[in-house]
C-alpha cells in the first residue's frame, strides 16, 4: 500500500469526522457550562439539566412528541411493510410505477412543500366531510405516518429483495396459505428490518419541525417546534442540555445495536465453521 495515499485517505477521514462531530461535542461541553452565555466558559455545572427538567413547556412538548412518534412508528411500519412487500413480491401489478413514485418521492420532497400540501388537504377535508376537525395531534400523526412509511417501505423492499423468494414458495408448497406464510415465514425473516424501520420512523417523527409546524393547531406544539421558537431567539443552555440527553440516548442505543449485531455475526461465522468441520 502506498504510504502517501493511505495518509491522504486517513486525513480525509479524520477531517470529515471532525466536521461531523465537533459541533455535537461543543453542544455537550457547553451544556455543563455555568454561564448563561453558553459559549463563554464559566465553570462546570449541571444546573441547566435541572432547569430543563423543571421547564414544563419543554417537558409537555417532549411528551407529546414521544406519543406522536410511537403511534406514528407503529402505523408507518404496518403500512410501509405492506407497501414494501407489494413492491418486492407482487410482481408487476397495475399502478406499480405510481406506487414506486409515491414511495420514493417523500424521501427527497422538500418539507415545506409536503407540509403545505398536507395542510391544504386537511383544510379541504374538514370543509367536505368534517374530518379531521381542526389541526392537532391527529393531523401531525397522519403527516408523519405518510413520510415515515415511505422510508419503511424502502427498507422493507430492499430487505425482502435480498431474501430468497423460494423460501416463501416452499412454505406455500408445504400447505401454508399466503397470509400464514406472511406471518410465519416472511415477518420473522424481515424482523430486523421491521425494528430498524420502527426506530427510524420514531426518530424522524421526533425530529420533524417543518411539516409539524404546518399541520399543527393550537395546543399541539411538538418538541422541535418549542425548541425552534427558543433557538430562534438565540442560544440557550437548556437546549444544550436537551441535545446532550438526546445524543447520549442515541449513542447508547446505536452502540448496543452495533455490539449485538457484531456478536450475532461472529456467532454465525463460528456456527458456519463448525458446520463445515462437522461435515469433513
Amino acid at each position: 500500500m502506498n504510504k502517501n495515499r493511505s495518509m491522504f485517505l486517513i486525513s480525509g477521514l479524520a477531517f470529515g469526522f471532525a466536521f461531523l462531530y465537533i459541533p455535537i461535542l461543543s453542544l455537550i461541553i457547553f451544556s455543563f457550562n455555568e454561564s448563561k452565555l453558553v459559549t463563554v466558559w464559566a465553570g462546570f455545572s449541571t444546573k441547566w439539566y435541572g432547569e430543563l427538567l423543571r421547564n414544563e413547556q419543554i417537558l409537555d412538548a417532549a411528551w407529546l412528541s414521544i406519543r406522536i412518534a410511537v403511534i406514528n412508528a407503529c402505523f408507518a411500519v404496518a403500512l410501509g411493510t405492506l407497501a414494501g412487500f407489494a413492491l418486492a413480491r407482487l410482481g408487476r401489478f397495475r399502478g406499480r410505477t405510481l406506487l414506486t413514485g409515491m414511495v420514493t418521492a417523500p424521501l427527497v420532497m422538500p418539507e415545506v412543500i409536503t407540509g403545505l400540501s398536507l395542510l391544504l388537504l386537511f383544510v379541504a377535508m374538514q370543509d367536505l366531510i368534517g374530518w379531521p376537525a381542526g389541526r392537532g395531534v391527529t393531523t401531525i400523526t397522519i403527516a408523519h405516518i405518510t413520510f415515515s412509511m415511505a422510508y419503511v417501505a424502502i427498507i422493507i423492499q430492499s430487505r425482502l429483495s435480498s431474501v430468497d423468494e423460494s423460501v416463501e414458495e416452499a412454505a406455500l408448497d408445504l400447505g401454508a396459505r399466503p397470509a400464514k406464510v406472511f406471518f410465519l415465514i416472511t415477518l420473522p425473516i424481515i424482523a430486523p428490518a421491521l425494528i430498524s424501520g420502527w426506530l427510524l420512523s420514531f426518530t424522524m417523527s421526533l425530529d420533524d419541525l417543518v411539516i409539524a409546524s404546518f399541520v399543527s393547531g393550537p395546543g399541539s406544539s411538538t418538541l422541535p417546534m418549542v425548541v425552534f421558537s427558543k433557538v430562534r431567539l438565540g442560544v440557550s443552555p437548556e437546549i444544550n442540555a436537551l441535545a446532550t440527553i438526546i445524543v447520549l440516548l442515541v449513542a447508547v442505543g446505536i452502540t448496543i445495536a452495533g455490539i449485538t449485531l457484531n456478536r450475532q455475526e461472529k456467532r454465525r461465522q463460528r456456527d458456519m465453521q463448525m458446520a463445515v468441520a462437522a461435515n469433513e
Binding site: P23, I24, S26, L27, F30, V38, T39, L206, D207, L209, P224, V227, F228, V231, G234, V235, I239, N240, L242, A243, I246, V247, V250
Partner: peptide
C-alpha cells in the same frame, strides 16, 4: 440525533 439541534450547534 436531532437535525434541528445539530443546526443549532453551529450557532454556538
Amino acid at each position: 440525533t436531532s437535525f434541528l439541534l445539530r443546526v443549532y450547534a453551529w450557532i454556538g
